[in-house]
């Protein structure tokens, strides 16, 4: 018994050390963001800024036009995610619960596209979207998501397959069509999976860097990672302001993570597919 306590203690100790190390970059970011310039470069470095200053946050917020960037990111992430989740669920329903001839072959085709690396389609899509006049608009970041994505269709299908066919059949006998069965019965029953997928997709869209960098050029349209990157190139050594900006950029993600942790981890465990 005592031996067990000892080994538990050792595990806790090891885990605590790793946890502190893992979280340290965030702690240091917060600490630096609250320091004035003299304190930032003081040696030895101090963890707790005394007195703390909020001025970096106000400067960073103003300089990056963060309010606008947050709204932009929010708009892109929410529209893309909402559309994607609904459509992916519908497509997944058809593959899980309807018999049609080429079903298996088509599903394999969808799965195969997961393997196509994004840098292959990057250039042709850019060329096409440019032809459409979609440069410096949100369309390239949102429209492809509205068709449903292969990985999300796959995850939803796995989930819907586990819902007994009896639900579909009894609704069918009661005169409900497939659209009705999907929307009124299957959708509500797959809420946990939908939330998981939605949160992961939202985070992926919010954190996306390459896509917005390629397509968005005017400052008023930029997303949070873009303005942060721009800010970094302008003020590469103003560490306290940079840390304040990073803090602002990370806050929504961290808060969302705290509230939806269960769904995020559940979603990753179920499919092992991110974003």
């Amino acid at each position: 018994m005592r031996k067990q306590y000892l080994s538990h203690g050792l595990i806790h100790l090891a885990l605590l050390v790793v946890a502190v190390t893992t979280l340290f970059p965030f702690v240091w970011m917060l600490s630096t963001s609250l320091k004035d310039t003299a304190l930032v470069f003081s040696y030895p470095p101090k963890l707790i800024p005394n007195p703390p200053t909020w001025v970096n946050y106000m400067d960073a917020w103003q300089e990056t036009a963060m309010t606008r960037a947050m709204l932009n990111s929010m708009f892109i992430a929410i529209t893309a995610t909402a559309g994607n989740v609904v459509i992916s669920s519908m497509v997944a329903y058809s593959f899980a619960k309807i018999d049609f001839r080429a079903k298996n072959a088509l599903f394999l085709l969808i799965l195969a596209t997961i393997m196509v690396p994004y840098q292959v389609t990057l250039i042709p899509l850019f060329v096409v979207f440019k032809q459409f006049g979609w440069i410096n608009t949100y369309y390239p970041l949102i429209v492809p998501a509205l068709f449903g994505t292969a990985s999300n269709v796959f995850l939803m299908r796995q989930y819907i397959m586990r819902i007994p066919d009896a639900y579909r059949d009894s609704a069918y006998i009661d005169g409900c069509g497939h659209i009705g069965i999907w929307w009124r019965i299957i959708m509500p029953m797959s809420i946990p999976m939908i939330v998981s997928i939605a949160v992961l997709m939202f985070m992926g869209k919010w954190n996306d860097f390459l896509g917005p960098m390629l397509y968005l050029s005017s400052p008023a349209k930029m997303t949070v990672p873009l303005v942060l990157r721009k800010f970094q190139t302008q003020y590469s050594t103003k560490w306290n302001m940079l840390m304040a900006a990073s803090c602002i950029a990370l806050a929504p993600v961290i808060i969302l993570y705290m509230f939806s942790q269960k769904y995020i981890i559940g979603g990753i465990m179920l499919g092992g597919v991110k974003g």
């Binding site: 459509i87 497509v91 058809s94 309807i98 042709p124 492809p144 068709f147 449903g148 497939h178």
Partner: peptide, 28 residues
């Protein structure tokens, strides 16, 4: 009718991968 509904409900992602994966791969 059942077949048709199946294809219809699956069509968004089928069109999507055609437009944003399959055709771009050949174009690339």
């Amino acid at each position: 009718h059942e077949e048709l509904v199946g294809y219809l409900m699956a069509s968004p992602t089928l069109i999507g991968i055609l437009l944003f994966s399959v055709i771009p791969v050949f174009f690339s």
